[in-house]
Simulated scan of single mutants.
Amino acid sequence: MARLLYAVLVGLVGAGIVHIAIVFLIPFYSERDSWALVSEAGPPYLVHRLDRAGPAGKALANADPMFEVAACRFDLEDGSVHLFSPGHVPYWSLSVFDRRGQNVFSLSERTATGGILDVVVAKPLQLIELRKAMPANYENAVFVETDISEGMVILRSFVPDPSWRQTVERHISAARCETGAG
């Protein structure tokens, strides 16, 4: 009976120590979330290439090395966001995340019109206003309706071999993330 009481006491003390350690580590890890890493890359409404040697290196440590990654932060309180890049690459994918890093929407060149990166992210009321007076440059865009305020877009482009690197880098360099009307 004494051994059982001793084991329970040691277990409770150990659980308490682990709990306290976790509570003290929360601030360290919460400040290093994906939003903070993308924020360090630069200001909102600009497409920033996320370099493995830069601030986002920790987040990209396990990413496929055959993909180039770029990000753009936005705030839908400023209006809708239009993301576009001309040209074709072997494969690209785009994901919209909220500020907490939850995936809101994803698409790839296979589901985009003509394989061209052309996406508009907007709140429901902004989307209604856009459809009333559709800008000419939105005619082939994929519309993403979301209730988030702040968010980020992650663009991944595939580099199948070194001969494609320059084309992919041009595609990412030409990518634009602009606040729109509404």
Rank of each mutant, 00 (worst) to 15 (best):
Ser106Arg: 06
Asp98Ala: 10
Val47Ile: 08
Leu46Cys: 04
Gly101Lys: 01
Val119Ser: 02
Ile154Leu: 15
Ala174Ile: 02
Arg165Pro: 01
Pro65Thr: 03
Trp164Phe: 12
Pro55Tyr: 13
Ser163Lys: 15
Cys72Gly: 04
Gly14Thr: 07
Ser80Phe: 03
Ala63Arg: 11
Met1Tyr: 03
Tyr45Gln: 01
Gly16Met: 05
Glu68Cys: 02
Gly42Glu: 10
Phe158Leu: 14
Phe24Ile: 11
Arg110Glu: 10
Val96Glu: 12
Asn140Thr: 10
Ile22Cys: 10
Ile148Lys: 06
Leu125Asn: 07
Asp33Thr: 07
Val144Leu: 06
Leu130Asp: 00
Val120Ala: 02
Ile154Cys: 08
Pro43Cys: 04
Pro124Gln: 10
Asp118Met: 05
Val153Gly: 04
Arg73Tyr: 06
Ala63Tyr: 07
Thr111Arg: 14
Tyr45Met: 01
Gly79Lys: 04
Glu68Ile: 11
Val96His: 12
Ser108Trp: 09
Phe74Arg: 10
Ser30Gln: 15
Ala7Gln: 14
Ala7Asp: 13
Ala7Thr: 12
Phe28Val: 15
Glu109Asn: 14
Glu139Met: 10
Val168Thr: 07
Ala175Val: 06
Gly87Tyr: 13
Val13Ile: 14
Glu139Asp: 12
Phe28Met: 12
Val38Cys: 05
Tyr45Asp: 03
Lys58Cys: 04
His171Trp: 15
Val18Cys: 11
Glu178Ser: 12
Gly54Ala: 11
Phe84Pro: 00
Val120Cys: 04
Tyr45Val: 00
Val13Ser: 13
Ala41Phe: 05
Glu145Gly: 01
Val119Cys: 06
Leu117Val: 09
Ala15Leu: 07
Ala174Phe: 05
Leu4Pro: 08
Ile148Glu: 06
Ile172Pro: 05
Leu94Gly: 06
Val8Arg: 14
Phe97Cys: 09
Pro135Asp: 00
Ser80Val: 00
Pro65Tyr: 03
Ser93Tyr: 00
Arg73Cys: 03
Ser157His: 02
Ala63Asn: 09
Ala133Asn: 15
Ala36Thr: 13
Ser34Cys: 09
Asp78Ile: 02
Val10Gly: 11
Glu77Asp: 13
Pro135Asn: 03
Gly14Leu: 03
Glu68Thr: 02
Asp118Ala: 07
Asp51Val: 05
Thr111Glu: 15
Ala7Met: 15
Val119Trp: 09
Ala2Ile: 05
Ala70Asp: 03
Trp92Thr: 05
Arg110Ser: 03
Ala7Lys: 14
Lys58Ala: 11
Leu60Asn: 07
Lys123Phe: 00
Arg110Tyr: 02
Ile172Trp: 03
Glu109Trp: 14
Val120Ser: 01
Asn62Lys: 07
Gly101Tyr: 00
